[in-house]
Write a protein that binds this DNA or RNA. Structure first.
Length: 424
RNA sequence: GGAGGAAUGGGUGAGUGGUUGAAACCGGCGGUCUUGAAAACCGUUAGCGUCGAAAGGUGCUCGGGGGUUCGAAUCCCUCUUCCUCCGCCA
């Protein structure tokens, strides 16, 4: 959500910048609607001001014992017109709100202009993809062979795009969860939270998932409850409609949660294995900052996510997303892509975004220092990391010729073994 | 699931139809005093719209929504959340 006054006063420039992300601002409808809305408000206000004055006059007259029947019926009459105008204003405001809510955030100046992932810019690369002296397998071969990943039975229990982990597969997931939470908690200063995995539509509106992306979500039937598509939603909304003490910012939170996505429209993409699931687990990093802090904190947050891959020894590259590839709420996004030998490609494992005040304005997250005026905070978040894809990366990168998988040093205390071998 | 109670400004907490957008106290901010600080005293201290170049008007806001009324924090309906007791339960 944009600041209304700013948006209105800089309409041409804003529209030009949003065009770089392929969004066409309906400039004329916006102007026209805004004017109609303001005219209706002004008209209703005038009548209300008169009504209020009359009511006060009636109060005075009645105190003196005068008869006010006439005045009362006059005011009653005006009430009808006020009601009509209020109805009109309500309709216009709703229409206007919907229009404004659908407009994406402004990209940062440094964001490269582009139309697709091909235009993203690599900003750094870490680690060397390992040279195998055998043909590395994909996790969808390795996992079932080890007896730790069972997609057939998951399909029976639920359906396609769900996974059942056995034994070391389940333990690896749990080890990664604990490892990541400990790393971010101890080394990076994040406070661990465990939020609800079900949220209401107001929360989804706050983060920008609604109204536009209802189709990507699972909704609980006959309720206003939805399964979270990411911990970003409940964690960002922790402070919805609150004013934070600016002196205590940034606030850094991390959470491990399952994430549920309908993946509508992604049929045919990543159909094998567990790269794209309806349910996956993720450790999410979320920050609330003062406006002037967010750029720096965004860099830190991205580095915090990268630190997980470095600690595990997984090669990756970090991409600055172009205007056309960013999510609508973001003003700047880094994707971290891990090397997957089984696909012979870098694959997204984390997405770290600075939302500026866009989400804060929608969710009502303000900050205020002692004497200053309250202003909207900035919100940031990023995966630190997607656990399922980390699980995949470990299998594929650390596989041996015999099909076993060597556990990264840093993970061994969590896993309890230094190698995953086939389960009988 | 049943029976009750509650929701007011940053906090505590008055207020049951007419200058109450809201007392009082605490906190915050500014000032007087002081070498400095404390104490004391004085002042000040909501948000979002809308009109306006500004000054300043004006509207809405006392959990949300709706209603009654010339007029609602105050009366009615409804929803939500929290608390107490009973039952059930991981």
């Amino acid at each position: 959500m944009h600041d209304l006054a700013f948006f209105r006063n800089n309409l041409e420039q804003v529209a030009a910048r949003l065009a770089t992300r392929g969004f066409v601002v309906p400039v004329e409808p916006f102007r026209e609607l805004d004017q109609r809305r303001r005219a209706a408000i002004t008209e209703a206000e005038e009548l209300k001001a008169r009504r209020n004055a009359s009511s006060e006059a009636i109060a005075r007259l009645r105190k003196q014992g005068s008869d006010t029947t006439e005045q009362q019926s006059a005011v009653r009459e005006s009430g009808k017109r006020i009601g009509e105008l209020d109805e009109q204003v309500r309709g216009l405001e709703e229409e206007f709100r919907l229009l404004l809510a659908g407009i994406p955030n402004l990209p940062d100046d440094c964001v490269p202009v582009g139309s697709s992932a091909d235009d993203n810019v690599e900003v750094r690369r870490w680690g060397q993809p390992r040279q195998f002296d055998f043909e590395p397998k994909a996790h969808w071969d390795l996992g079932p062979a080890l007896g730790i990943l069972d997609l057939e039975r998951a399909a029976k229990i639920t359906g396609a795009r769900f996974a059942l982990y056995w034994s070391w597969g389940a333990k690896l997931e749990r080890a990664l969860m604990n490892f990541m939470l400990d790393l971010h908690g101890r080394e990076h200063g994040y406070t661990e939270v465990l939020p609800p995995y079900v949220v209401n539509s107001a929360s989804l509106y706050g983060t920008g998932n609604l109204p536009k992306f209802a189709g990507d979500l699972f909704r609980l039937e006959n309720t206003d409850f939805w399964l979270i598509p990411t911990a970003e939603v409940p964690v960002t909304n922790i402070y919805s409609n609150e004013t934070l003490d600016a002196e205590r910012l940034p606030i850094s939170l991390c959470a491990y949660t399952p994430c549920f996505r309908s993946e509508a429209g992604s049929h045919g993409r990543d159909v094998r294995g567990i790269i794209r699931q309806h349910q996956f687990q993720k450790v999410e990093l979320v920050k609330f900052t003062r406006p002037e802090q967010s750029a720096e904190e965004h860099e830190k947050l991205t580095r915090n996510a990268e630190a997980v891959l470095q600690a595990l020894g997984l090669p990756y590259r970090t991409m600055l997303l172009c205007t056309g590839d960013m999510g609508p709420s973001a003003q700047r996004t880094y994707d971290i892509e891990v090397w997957l030998p089984g696909q012979n490609a870098y694959k997204e494992i984390s997405s770290c975004s600075n939302y500026g005040a866009y989400q804060a304005r929608r969710a009502g997250i303000r900050c205020k220092s002692g004497k200053g005026k309250a202003e909207f905070a900035h919100t940031l978040n990023g995966s630190g990391l997607a656990v399922g894809r980390t699980w995949v990366a470990i299998l594929e990168n650390f596989q041996e010729k015999d099909g076993s998988v060597v556990a990264p040093e840093a993970l061994r205390p969590y896993l309890g073994v230094d190698r995953i071998t086939a389960v009988r």
